[in-house]
Write a protein that binds this DNA or RNA. Structure first.
Lengths: 347, 347
DNA sequence: TTGTAGGCGTTATCAC
DNA sequence: GTGATAACGCCTACAA
């Protein structure tokens, strides 16, 4: 009050471990032991120091910890996924797991096509001394990233459409089963001329989903001419194009399974442009349960995989040591068929 | 080769400023000066040290810098925006600006309704010693966040639908003008019975867009009964509900302006459910140019604001000092009308 | 223009 | 069990 204060603005939050040690009447190392939950401490001492910490409102300085430990309390999210909703769901899941912990999430998109991609990734995890990373599909399928993590002493968990790694480093959905169930549903309704809009080659999810589709048809004794498979790139426009190719088939398919919702939306778009009624003339099933699926007309029947839950488990696996809170996190997640208006019986 | 190496894994990336100093034959302070681009250095010395740095592939340790400087090289993205595509566009813009810099992006959603929101925010920027934050709408409208940033010595730039702060701390779109243009378009086509699906109260963007709508109607001498305004919450479902209320009006509106695309999609959904043809019976314009707008049938005419560009400028303002590279970044961004298939002449 | 000493806040080492 | 002392890698202040 009157003139600039000579006291640095450390009224709160700028307490150091020394302040705690002084008030508690112990050495800073003892405080450090309390913070790091080390075992060989007299219970009485621990409780006393914890009381002082709570009273003062002290929190350790992350920068100093990072320097001393050679490791930051940051979890990286590495992705090259073009689907905004998917990425946001993953972020939400990770942040939910990290809530009320000392960890923060740092996001890094990677360009799968770039020749410097691996170097960028290594620099990223090494320079930031990341505690761990969550690898999103499809780039999680690249084994080199996992290897670089190991070399850098950076923990990792991969997300994928099938198991690509050991359970403690993996959360997987069962895309193949999900698609098989969806295809069985179409077959059960009486469809026999069922076409596929496949995902791009080189994507494991595309392969898994396609296999589920082919297995279902095979088990039912239904043939699948190669012309009944149109490949897309998971984007809306490719769904339009793929559907147009499929509509030219003679006889025309009565149903289409699309390897994701965005392409399914494109297919419905194309159907409407040709005067085809969905589901009257054509049934469509997608994959993902992207919001677009619920908002299209008709709402699209789809296969839902629990993205946020998987990401949450991934982050928990990263943060908690084995045999601790996060140890029992599942590594396999089931998808479910969501029945909406885009499927009917064949005419 | 044969037995564990006693040498710590510091083959690369683990070089310190001391290594550089030794090889260059200078003191570490001199190296530090080169790193921090300080001026009072002999050009010859600088070049020599830069050469050694490049040769060694040395990069400064961010943790140590953060500790010494009391400031991290992290840019926070703070948001409470429910629209996945919007958030992803902002992330993309920020990361583009941060590419090839030493900065990383750290993401923190905030719950506008939580009583501890401000405390969480303060803890976040203080504990992490953030270099700066980008505040996304609608939470960017909260002046308290800006104040807390100032107190913590954390730079900030706010994104918004109108100027809320000084130009160096603000990137704004001109929503009001954008909506006015869109509404004029409808009027020019002959529409006179034009209804509004408004955004939620308390959102500045909702207010700006509504004002633009009302101004356009007012300038054209068209009345706007209060029953012709239906409020939504920016989500799809509320667009459906709002449209249903509007369809009950007698006479029915021939056009609807919706304050965002998601609600516009809901309105089209509702129209189809009632057997109304778009644009035959009803014209619809949205706002955002969300992907859903292009993918709906018919594709939705909308107002596009340059989200990623704004976010990129915001990050550049944060990172670069005045009168430097990022100083001339604009703080006002224009929206544009994207004409698609959801608008026609009134019947 | 450059170098030396000391500090940032924490953890590791090794005595006691 | 607990405490001095030395790192961790960089930057600031001040001296040369």
């Amino acid at each position: 009050m009157g003139g600039p204060s000579p006291v640095p603005a450390r009224s709160r939050g700028n307490l150091t471990i020394n302040d705690v040690a002084r008030v508690a009447g112990v050495s800073k190392k003892t405080v450090s032991r309390v913070i790091n939950r080390e075992t060989q401490l007299k219970a009485r001492t621990r409780e006393h120091v914890e009381g002082v910490i709570a009273m003062l409102g002290y929190t350790p300085n992350p920068q100093a910890r990072a320097l001393a430990l050679g490791r930051n309390f940051l979890i990286g999210l590495v992705h090259d996924n073009p689907n905004a909703q998917t990425v946001m769901s993953v972020q939400q899941g990770i942040l939910e797991a990290l809530r009320d912990t000392e960890f923060e999430m740092i996001v890094r998109p990677l360009d799968r096509g770039s020749p410097t991609m691996l170097d960028e990734f290594r620099d990223f995890i090494e320079r930031q001394r990341l505690f761990g990373v969550v690898l999103m599909p499809p780039i999680s399928e690249n084994d080199m990233l996992a290897r670089l993590c190991e070399e850098a002493g950076c923990r990792y968990v991969r997300m994928g459409s099938t198991a690509l790694d050991t359970p403690d480093r993996m959360v997987a959905s069962n895309d193949r089963e999900g698609v098989r169930t969806a295809t069985d549903y179409l077959i059960g309704l009486g469809h026999r001329r069922i076409a596929l809009i496949a995902g791009p080659q080189g994507f494991r999810s595309a392969r898994e989903r396609r296999m589920g589709f082919e297995q279902a048809l095979g088990d039912a004794g239904i043939a699948l001419p190669s012309s009944w498979v149109a490949e897309g790139d998971y984007l809306f426009g490719s769904g339009v194009a793929a559907a147009e190719r499929l509509f030219a088939l003679e006889p025309r398919p009565t149903a289409i399974f699309s390897c994701n919702d965005e392409m399914a939306a494109g297919a419905i778009h194309a159907a409407r442009a040709q005067g085809l009624d969905v589901p009257g003339d054509l049934s469509v099933i997608g994959f993902d349960d992207n919001p677009i699926a619920a908002h299209m007309w008709p709402p699209i029947t789809t296969v839902r995989w629990p993205i946020a839950s998987m990401a949450r488990s991934a982050a928990l696996k990263l943060v908690f040591e084995r045999s601790q809170d996060g140890a029992d996190e599942p590594s396999l997640f089931l998808s479910t068929l969501i029945r909406r208006g885009s499927v009917g019986t064949p005419r």
